[in-house]
Structure formats: C-alpha cells, structure tokens
Amino acid sequence: MANGHCDRAELIGDTEFARPSRPHLRSAIRGRMRFLLLLAPLAACTPLPTELLAEDASASGADGERGPLGADLYTFMAQARVTERMHYEVVVPVGGEAPYPLVTMVHGGFVDTERYRWLTAHLASRGYVVVAAEHPANLAITQIGNSEVALSDFERRPLADRLDADAPAAVMGHSLGGVIAAMTWNTDGRYAGLGLLASFPAAGTAVETRSDGSVLSLWGSEDGGDEEEAMHAVERFDTDANFARIDGMNHYAWTDDASASELGRDGVATRPDDETRPDALRVLDTWLDAVLYEDAGAASALSAGQFANVEWNP
C-alpha cells in the first residue's frame, strides 16, 4: 500500500470482488452492488496528501531550522463516540527512515488547525508525525477526547506504519490547547513530553501527581496572557519542567493569520514572527530531540539552557 492509500483489501476485507466477466445483466447488477458496497468505506481511506514542505537535502536540521525531510498533510474523518463525525490532520515526514515518534498538537481556542501548519510541517521535516484533531467551534474543551479519537483512528490506517508506536511521544498545545494537552499528558502515560505553547495547566489538573516525563513551557515576553501564572504553573510539576521566555514574542505569534481582534487583545510583539519563531523553535526542537529521540546532545543543551533571545527559567 504505497503512500498509505486505500487498497482493495482494506476496503472489503477478505472478500474478493471481481469485475463481472460477462456483460450479463445479473453480473452487471452484481457489479454495481459491489461498487456501492465499496463506496461506503471510502471515507475511511487515505486521501491524497498535500505537500507542505518538499524534501530538501541541503536543510541542516539544526535546532530551530527545518529538517531535510518533506512534510505531507493528510486530512481524515473519524467516527467519534459512535455517532459523531470529526476531522483531524496528520502531517507526516517524507523521505528518511520511518517510523517516527508522535507529536500530538492541540489547537488554541477559536484557532483552527490550519493556522499551525507552519509548525506541524516544521516538526515533520525534522522527523515527527504530528496529529492534530479538530473540535466543535474550535474549542478543544468541548471534546477533550478528540485527540485520542484521532490517534486511535489513525493507528488503524495503513499510513500508521510511519508512526513509531513504541517510541516516546509528546503532546503539546497552544493556549487553551495547552490546557487540554496538560490534562491528556497527566492521564496518558504514552506521552513522555508535554509542550505548553503560551499556556499553562488548569488549576484543577493535578499535574503534580505525575513524577515522570518532561515538560517545556514556552512563553513570549509580550504575551497578553498571565505570565506570572504560567511561571508558577511550571513549579507545580513534580518532574523535569522548564520555562523559556522568548524575547519579543506575543501570544498569536504561534498562529498564522492572526486577526485584528486577536492581536487587539494580545501584547504587541516587539520582534517579527520570522525572528521570534526560530528562537522558540530552537528550544522546542532541542527539547523534542531530547525527550523523543533521547538525544544526549540535546539533553545537554537543555541542561545548559543557553538559547539566543531566550530567558531560561527566569
């Protein structure tokens, strides 16, 4: 099943569906019936991908920079909670040697997953499969389990062979998505890493009860949110948890196409996104490599905490 597209076996199980050998009316009807039977599961098939990034062998893959792998976007539908339909995106690395570790991304409140594709493509180019579920009204709080539904659905698809189910995984979220990511991390041992992007866990999430794993909180110095609470939240973790303040970055620098309304209630970024994002990604990449690839050099860099334009555990 090249590129994870549907094959006949996935569609129809063990049943063999042959084209009618004679132009006979009964055979023709039978053939159409079989065709109709094939239609129903089509929604479960792997659609054609959209290329977000082409492979680039010249890419250094240094922390903060894209990797040499390409990034393909797939959009799937899943059957959730028996009767519901939900969409989710998966961005997979192209080229290189699969399988790759999982990063689950949870979008912020009223921000759709498309606006994080710059980030998910970046991560895929560095060798991570990124799964991002959608939610009603773009509010992850309404259906906290959607990431789990998306991952469960994805794992039964042929494309899941790109995913290393045995490797450590990370869950991260932006803003409200970070609140949900923290809840997920707190209860799902599959996630070794929790990435908080301009976010912090809710007071009711007992993050202090988990003593393993690693947490990274990235916060822009110009974020319109409550930085003090974000810093204090990091202290609640009973595991390795670090706080990084990105100079000049605001809340919506994590998203593309921020609206005037969003920017109006955010702080004013003092540096452009194309400067602050690489600074933030440098930390994020280092952390992911340390946690998911268990890269000793990355772990050492984290311990040193020396990142340009970043205050480390201020």
């Binding site: 929604a43 479960a44 028996v82 009767t83």
Partner: peptide, 11 residues
C-alpha cells in the same frame, strides 16, 4: 438501530 457513516458500523 443505526449506522455510522464514516466508519460504517452498525449500532
């Protein structure tokens, strides 16, 4: 009784 239309499963 019903049927889910994404993953066609009866319920």
């Amino acid at each position: 009784a019903g049927i889910g239309l994404v993953r066609p499963w009866p319920y």
